Computed example of a mutant assay.
Amino acid sequence: MDVTYESTKREIATDKGILRYHEAGDGPPLLLLHGSGIGVNGWRNYRGNLGFYANHFHCYVLEFPGFGVSDPVPGHPVLTAVDAVTRFMDALGIDSAHMIGNSMGGVVAVNVAMRHPDRVHKLVSIGGVGAGVFSADPSEGTRLLQHFADEPSRERLQQWLECMIYDPKLITDDLIEERWTAAIRPEAQQALKAMYGSEALALQQQFLAGSPNPPYWSMLHKVQAPTLLTWGANDRQCPPDMALIPLRLIPEAEMHVFPHCGHWVMYEAKTAFERITLEFLQR
């Protein structure tokens, strides 16, 4: 199915502001949840995949609050995104849906699945879910995000983009320009600082050290939805050893690793990713 930005864009009012999204296709509902990072939003994450999935599902690409598209709300971007998913589903009358989540979007999806198990039918994550077992923490990609959040520049943006992808030929001037234009918007800078700025990362470590609550990844046994973990073998943002925890804890988890591929699996391994995820979702 051919999709364009203008033909698919929608918005809906909720009690916490307007949520914007892209909609295409017909069939069982499928929510596509975007990641975090520099200049990110839902359309940029999934515009290359939406047409494929729209041939099989009624697709919704939700724009999370705080990334410059939907109305911002106070709070940490991950927590506000979890709330946004359920608000969005309630507003559109979607009882349950398949979910595909890229990085942060995968974390959001598993949190929805843990809190509202009846609302997630099947779940696909693209990196992100879990915690490092053998790799350094923070990862190389997170350190580059920290440097950009503290002091944005085109050079630091390009360094981070090169960390996201295995094949450097995919880092085009157009991609750099698009991400830079989006990243310098005040709301985008605020969201990035809230997640990856030096102060935010330091506060996060302090909170984890003193919090009586366990981290989300230690409660992944609560995810009842069949889950497909997808990973790039060369992911330097969320190294593949992160998958060991969710693969062990989620009762119905399976995993596919894509060779010669970085963090953006749906972009860099597009055809294989779409084929494998479609088989899983339709199984």
Rank of each mutant, 00 (worst) to 15 (best):
T181A: 11
P259C: 12
P251C: 06
A13V: 14
S96F: 08
G132R: 06
P74T: 15
P29V: 14
V124P: 01
T86E: 11
Q146W: 01
V69P: 03
Q206N: 08
E274D: 14
G262S: 02
K270T: 10
S96Y: 13
A209R: 05
A182R: 12
L145S: 09
N234H: 05
R115M: 12
T271H: 06
S125K: 09
T172G: 04
Q206F: 09
G141V: 00
L19G: 03
V61F: 12
C59R: 00
V108F: 10
G141Y: 04
L32S: 01
E6Y: 03
I171R: 11
H116C: 13
G39W: 14
E178G: 01
H98M: 12
Q282S: 13
E187P: 04
P226I: 07
R236V: 09
I12S: 11
M114V: 02
G262I: 11
T80Y: 06
A13Q: 14
R115Q: 11
G132K: 02
H256A: 15
G68I: 13
V61E: 01
A209P: 03
K169T: 10
R143T: 02
D174V: 05
H147Y: 10
G68E: 05
C238P: 05
V82Y: 03
I250T: 10
Y60T: 06
L33C: 06
L145H: 07
D137G: 06
V124S: 03
